[in-house]
Computed example of a mutant assay.
Amino acid sequence: MDSDDRREHSRTAMNAAVKVSHETQGEFVFSTRDVSDGGVFIVVEDAPFTPALGDEVSVQVQGLPVPAPILKMLVVRETNDGFGLQFKESAECQ
């Protein structure tokens, strides 16, 4: 592992549609780039979605035969094309 890589969990590439709800910015549907035991990375591109680090969002996988659970997540990383979200339960356990 690279000494600059602080990831606790291995990532797996995964492209899925997820609905992301933010208290003040509303609802959006984004694609995921990868997922891990700790969270997920969403690709935002040009969408007007600009949460602050530490903001809570609700995330639900779309396109399944039954409604997926809605999970609470925290915005923990920002890049030029998206955001890293951490499962809230994982953040509270640290």
Rank of each mutant, 00 (worst) to 15 (best):
T24I: 06
V35A: 03
H22F: 03
V61G: 03
T12H: 07
S10N: 11
D55H: 10
R11P: 04
D37E: 15
V59W: 01
L53D: 02
N15G: 04
V61Q: 12
V35I: 14
S31T: 07
T12Q: 12
A52L: 14
R6C: 10
V44D: 08
A52D: 15
G26L: 00
G39P: 08
V20D: 03
P51D: 09
Q60W: 02
N15I: 14
S21H: 01
V18H: 00
S36W: 02
S21E: 13
R7N: 09
I42V: 15
E27Q: 14
V43S: 14
R6G: 12
F41W: 13
P48G: 10
Q60F: 04
F28I: 07
A17F: 02
F49E: 06
R6T: 13
H22W: 02
A47H: 10
T12R: 10
E45G: 07
F49W: 12
F41A: 03
S10Y: 05
A13Q: 09
T24R: 13
V43D: 15
E45A: 14
V57A: 12
G38M: 10
V59G: 05
S58M: 12
F30V: 06
G26H: 05
V43C: 13
V18L: 02
L53P: 04
N15V: 14
P51T: 00
V57K: 09
R7Y: 05
A16K: 11
V40A: 03
F30A: 09
E56I: 15
E56A: 10
S31D: 14
V29Q: 04
F49P: 05
T50E: 13
A17S: 12
A47L: 11
E56H: 05
D5N: 15
H9E: 11
E8R: 15
F28L: 06
S21P: 01
V59E: 01
T12S: 12
D37I: 00
V29P: 01
E45I: 06
Q25R: 07
D55G: 07
I42A: 10
E8A: 08
F28N: 08
S58I: 06
G39A: 07
D46F: 10
V57D: 11
K19A: 15
S36T: 09
D5I: 10
P48W: 02
G54C: 07
V43I: 15
A16Y: 04
V59F: 02
D46H: 14
G39E: 07
G54V: 12
R6N: 14
E56R: 14
D34V: 00
E8L: 13
F41M: 08
R7E: 09
Q25W: 02
A52F: 09
T32E: 01
Q25T: 04
E56L: 15
